[in-house]
């Protein structure tokens, strides 16, 4: 195959077949992925959960993952957050003309690896090649379907006063990794993205109770944004204990340098769970048994007071508001 992707790879001709055969089929091969126009799937038992997400990230490869792994984790995690076991995925690629084939292969390989780990199959796909400059490297869109038990009813609006708030690990690592990789601020630090599939973590939590009020993965906007969404949807307050929020020391150093709050940096492998407080200990113990939630911690509680707001108990024993997330993350320096 060519060393780079050309417009011919997207034209539907021989080179398209070559790309599909040598790359996509090689890695994604399974009994449901055929050369026909659409996949035909067995009817699953139970209710379905479905989600779709588009992925653009610059750079496309970063410590701890790449856009391929991200595109699988993102959709798998969205489905898992409804309490569903992910079954099938589709993926659509838009590739920039001139993209290195070896790089594409690394991306596809890690997609396959993540799918295997989760036990989900890619059953349909699409490839387009866009002219140089029309996209930044590669964009991937994945759509997924999962199946969930009848008694699972999670949602942002279900949070109730008295519930505990759990996060499954240290916050802000993915956003920090990307910021460092772009090297705009010339900061060097050894930080690895938290990018990970979270279906096993959700499974472990469901092993403790199905009465999980909210399960949400904290992606763009970080844990802070998720907590504001929950406060808004459920009309409740959220109180956090600043000292209990896990933050990696190096992530903290980078954030301090740039005046950023790790609660607003993206995660790609962290859940926020809201559940009745009586399950807190059981949930923490169960989550810590799973590979990507070893630092799970209770960080706060849901309150009736301060509806729509996230309150922080500070390190000096006072209360303050966690400011609402802004738009673009702007370093504060002068």
């Amino acid at each position: 195959m060519n060393e780079t992707i050309t417009l011919a790879h997207g034209s539907g001709g021989r080179q398209t077949s070559e790309l599909i055969g040598d790359l996509f089929k090689k890695y994604f091969d399974n009994d449901l992925l055929t050369a026909d126009d659409a996949a035909v799937l067995p009817r699953p038992e139970g209710r379905l959960s479905m989600s779709t997400d588009g992925f653009i990230v610059s750079p496309a490869e970063f410590p701890g993952g790449n856009i391929g792994k991200l595109s699988i984790c993102g959709t798998v995690n969205d489905i898992a957050c409804m309490g569903a076991a992910p079954l099938y995925l589709t993926c659509g690629f838009v590739i920039e003309e001139g993209f290195e084939t070896a790089r594409l292969e690394r991306i596809v390989e890690s997609m396959a690896k993540t799918c295997k780990e989760v036990g989900v199959k890619i059953v349909a796909g699409d490839t387009k090649v866009a002219g140089k400059g029309q996209v930044d490297g590669v964009f991937i869109t994945t759509t997924g379907i999962g199946v969930l038990p009848d008694d699972m009813h999670t949602g942002g609006a279900c949070a109730q006063p008295g519930d505990c708030v759990i996060v499954t690990g240290d916050v802000g690592r993915h956003g920090c990794t990307i910021l460092l990789e772009r090297n705009e601020f010339k900061i060097k630090a050894d930080v690895t993205s938290d990018c990970a599939p979270l279906s096993t973590a959700v499974d472990a939590a469901m092993g403790v109770t199905h009465d999980l009020h909210v399960v949400r993965d904290a992606t763009r906007g970080g844990v802070g944004t998720v907590l504001y969404e929950i406060a808004d949807q459920a009309g409740v307050g959220v109180t956090l204990n600043a000292k209990d929020i896990p933050v990696d020391e190096t992530v903290r150093g980078v954030c301090d340098m740039l005046g950023l709050n790790p609660l607003y940096l993206a995660c790609e492998g962290r859940l926020v769970l809201v559940a009745p407080a009586e399950y807190a200990d059981g949930l923490i113990a169960a989550l810590r048994e799973t590979p990507y939630a070893k630092d799970a911690a209770v960080i706060g509680e849901i309150t009736e007071a301060n509806p729509g707001k996230v309150i922080l108990n500070t390190e000096i024993g006072t209360k303050t508001i966690l400011p609402l997330p802004g738009g673009e993350l702007l370093p504060r320096i002068c």
């Binding site: 010339k186 060097k188 630090a189 050894d190 020391e249 190096t250 150093g253 301090d256 340098m257």
Partner: peptide, 23 residues
């Protein structure tokens, strides 16, 4: 930002704050 100086050369210091390094 409080940080520790790890290297010094020609008016440039490498500083380290919790593992984050910068000149």
């Amino acid at each position: 930002l409080p940080a520790k100086v790890t290297e010094l050369k020609d008016g440039v210091a490498v500083i380290n704050a919790g593992g984050a390094e910068r000149e």
